[in-house]
């Protein structure tokens, strides 16, 4: 992919030599707020195994540290009789039991469903009038967001496509004391490249000391068609000053929201930044489809054809000459 001359500028242009100063200030701010940010991390709050936005008809049956049991009614109107909002969180490593209940008893016809936990490759048995309750149990061993959807061509299918299971990364997957770390974020425009931007994150431990050698992931809040979410921009390791830098390229003007976190865990720390286009946006430039050599052109065919037909005309003219001669001969005879 080639991209040329995206002229995006930051409304808070900060010259590159100032970056260090900025970063230093940043570490200070983060250090002061470290305790607060750390406390907000979901990992450090025990006894909160399942949360989210349970819709009506959704029920957290039981939740312990090791297992969680969710029960939801599925009907043509959606999960829990609602179109949207079936979403729950578990922690990585928990055993999840999902029970679906048939909710279309008011319908004359049978309206069977089969549910899938996308990304876990888990499928329920067929849920229908004769089998009004199905359950699956699995261990949530992978972190991330997973979709729960119906794969049977049922009535109200489109209402049963967007259940969400969020598996929060476990604390054990990160370096020691990772849950205590705090992240601050700042951004500065770079001069090296149009639309270039440098994101700087500072990582400190609860004591306020910079933490080197931690991988920081940077995100951008993005919306694409009807989808939105945090798009990962890249990762960077913190240097001895506890600062991680990432050079990114902006592809569109407008208000942009960035975030950073210690890779793989913890909440994101957000930083808002407004960028606007300065000058025309050239956009994506596909390669030319032809050779692009001047005069080598398909229209040369006309030239060849014109030559041929001109010659034909010369030959056909001879017929006219024959005709003319014949006429002269007749009138002479």
């Amino acid at each position: 992919m080639t991209r040329h001359h995206r002229r995006l500028a930051c409304r808070r242009p900060v010259a590159r030599p100032l970056l260090a100063t900025l970063a230093a200030a940043l570490s200070l701010v983060v250090a002061l707020g470290a305790g607060r940010v750390g406390a907000a991390s979901g990992d450090s709050v025990p006894g909160h195994p399942a949360a989210g936005h349970p819709a009506a008809g959704t029920e957290v049956v039981s939740a312990t540290d090791g297992a969680v049991h969710i029960r939801v009614t599925a009907s043509r109107h959606g999960f829990g009789h609602e179109g949207e909002g079936f979403r729950f969180e578990v922690r990585q490593g928990q055993e999840v039991t999902l029970t679906f209940e048939y909710g279309d008893d008011d319908l004359e016809r049978d309206n069977p469903h089969v549910f899938l936990v996308q990304g876990y490759g888990i499928r329920t048995e067929r849920l229908d009038r004769n089998n009004p309750e199905v359950a699956v149990t699995f261990r949530a061993d992978r972190a991330g967001t997973f979709t729960i959807r119906c794969i049977e061509p049922c009535t109200g299918h489109s209402n049963l496509l967007a259940g969400r299971l969020e598996v929060l990364a476990a604390a054990g997957a990160t370096p020691e004391g990772g849950s205590e770390l705090a992240v601050g974020l700042a951004a500065a425009a770079t001069r090296r490249q149009p639309g270039g931007l440098t994101l700087v994150a500072a990582v400190v431990d609860p004591a306020g000391n910079p933490v080197p050698g931690v991988r920081v992931a940077f995100y951008e809040q993005a919306s694409f068609l009807d989808q939105s979410g945090w798009a990962e921009l890249g990762t960077a390791m913190t240097d001895p000053q506890g600062l991680a830098r990432l050079d990114v390229t902006l592809y569109r003007p407008g208000e942009l929201t960035f975030a950073a976190r210690v890779a793989g865990r913890g909440p994101r720390t957000e930083a808002r930044l407004t960028a606007s286009a300065a000058g025309p946006v050239a956009g994506y430039q596909p390669e030319p489809r032809a050779l692009g050599v001047p005069f080598i052109n398909v229209r040369l065919i006309w030239l060849a054809a014109a030559g041929v037909w001109a010659t034909y005309a010369m030959a056909a003219y001879q017929v006219y000459r024959v005709y003319r001669e014949g006429k002269a001969w007749s009138s002479g005879a």
Partner: peptide
């Protein structure tokens, strides 16, 4: 109008 005249033959 072919009459086999020299001019016609030439043409």
């Amino acid at each position: 109008g072919w009459r086999n005249t020299p001019g016609q033959r030439e043409a």
